[in-house]
C-alpha cells in the first residue's frame, strides 16, 4: 500500500515537470486563439526560445538571463507571424507553419556548435517552503520541482482571471468572437490581435527555455520534438480555458510518465509514440464530448479581419 502511494506521488511529481512546457505553450496559444488567431508556429517559437535561452545561459552563466532571452526570441518570432497573419492577412495556417519550418532550420544552423554540451549552470530542483510539508500534495507537487513549474500553474490562474474577469480579457475575447463588433466599439482589433500573438510567443519562448535550461539542460537540434504541436492540441482539449489547461497538461504528463513504467513490456521507440497518440485521442474525445461542430471555439478563429468585409 505504501509502495503504491509512493508510486502515485512520484508519478504526479514527474508529471508536473513533463507538463510544464506544455502548459506554458498551451496557455500562450489559448490567449492567441481567444483573440481569433491560430498560430501553428508554436513549435518554431519554442525551439528558437530553447536555443536562445541555452546560448545566453551558457555564455552568461545565469539561467534566468537565458530565460529572458528565450522569451525575447519567442516574441520576435511571433512578431513575424503577427505581421504576416494579422497585419498582412496572410493565411494563418501557412504563416505559422512557415515559422515552424524556418525556426527548426535556423536553430539547426545556429545551434550546430552548441550540440552536446551540458549547460554549466542549469535551473535546479527546489522545495517550495510551507507547501512542501503538506502531506500528499507536498511530495506530489511542491518538493523537488522547478520554479517554472509553479509559475506555470500560477500563470494559468492569473490568465483565467484576466480572460474572464477583467476588461482586458473582455477586449481580447471580443476580438476573437466578433471582431466587427469590437471594432465598432472602438477596439483596435489588429493591435489587440498582434499583441496577443506576441504574448503567445513569449509563453512559447518560456516553454522552450524550460526545456533547454531545466528539463534537459543542454541543446539538441529539434529538441522540442513536437511538444509545440502537442501544446496546440492541448489548447483545444482544454476548450480554450486556462484552468482546464492545468488539468489537461497534468493528465498528459501523468499518461506519459506512466507509459514509461511499461518499459519492460514495450520497446522504447513504441513508448515514445505515446504522447503523440494521446494527443490524437484527446482531440477525438474533445470532439465526441462536444458534438461535431460546436466546440466552444472562438467564433472568428482563423479568420483575418479587415474592416468592411466579412
Amino acid at each position: 500500500m505504501d509502495v503504491d502511494l509512493a508510486l502515485v506521488l512520484t508519478t504526479l511529481a514527474r508529471a508536473l515537470a513533463f507538463s510544464t512546457p506544455l502548459l506554458w505553450a498551451a496557455l500562450g496559444e489559448i490567449v492567441v486563439e481567444r483573440a481569433g488567431v491560430v498560430n501553428l508556429g508554436v513549435e518554431g517559437m519554442m525551439i528558437l526560445g530553447a536555443l536562445a535561452g541555452f546560448v545566453v545561459a551558457q555564455s552568461s552563466g545565469d539561467p534566468w538571463l537565458g530565460l529572458a532571452a528565450a522569451t525575447a526570441a519567442g516574441v520576435a518570432a511571433a512578431a513575424v507571424h503577427g505581421l504576416l497573419a494579422v497585419v498582412l492577412r496572410a493565411n494563418q495556417y501557412v504563416s505559422g507553419l512557415a515559422l515552424t519550418i524556418f525556426g527548426l532550420g535556423l536553430t539547426g544552423l545556429i545551434g550546430r556548435g552548441w550540440v552536446g554540451r551540458p549547460l554549466r549552470n542549469p535551473m535546479e530542483f527546489v522545495d517550495l517552503p510551507l507547501l512542501a510539508s503538506v502531506p500528499l500534495l507536498g511530495p506530489a507537487f511542491f518538493q523537488g520541482q522547478y520554479v517554472l513549474s509553479w509559475l506555470g500553474l500560477l500563470a494559468a490562474v492569473v490568465l483565467w482571471f484576466v480572460l474572464h474577469h477583467t476588461r482586458l480579457g473582455l477586449v481580447v475575447r471580443s476580438v476573437g468572437e466578433n471582431p466587427a463588433a469590437a471594432d465598432a466599439a472602438g477596439v483596435r482589433v489588429l493591435w489587440v490581435r498582434f499583441l496577443a500573438v506576441t504574448f503567445g510567443g513569449a509563453m512559447a519562448g518560456v516553454a522552450g527555455g524550460f526545456l533547454s535550461l531545466a528539463y534537459r539542460p543542454s541543446w539538441g537540434q529539434g529538441m522540442t520534438n513536437g511538444l509545440g504541436w502537442i501544446a496546440l492540441a492541448l489548447a483545444i482539449f482544454a476548450l480554450w480555458d486556462p484552468l482546464r489547461a492545468i488539468f489537461a497538461a497534468l493528465l498528459f504528463g501523468a499518461l506519459f510518465t506512466l507509459s514509461f513504467s511499461l518499459q519492460e513490456f514495450f520497446a522504447p521507440q513504441l513508448l515514445t509514440m505515446m504522447p503523440y497518440l494521446f494527443t490524437i485521442l484527446a482531440l477525438a474525445i474533445t470532439a465526441v464530448r462536444k458534438g461535431a461542430g460546436a466546440f466552444g471555439a472562438p467564433e472568428a478563429l482563423g479568420e483575418p479581419y479587415a474592416r468592411g468585409r466579412r
Binding site: 513575424v80 504576416l84 512557415a98 519550418i101 524556418f102 527548426l104 535556423l106 544552423l109
Partner: peptide, 14 residues
C-alpha cells in the same frame, strides 16, 4: 538547406 526552405516559404506568404 532548412533555413533556405523556411525563407522561401516566408517570402511566398509575404
Amino acid at each position: 538547406t532548412g533555413v533556405v526552405q523556411g525563407l522561401v516559404l516566408l517570402c511566398i506568404i509575404a
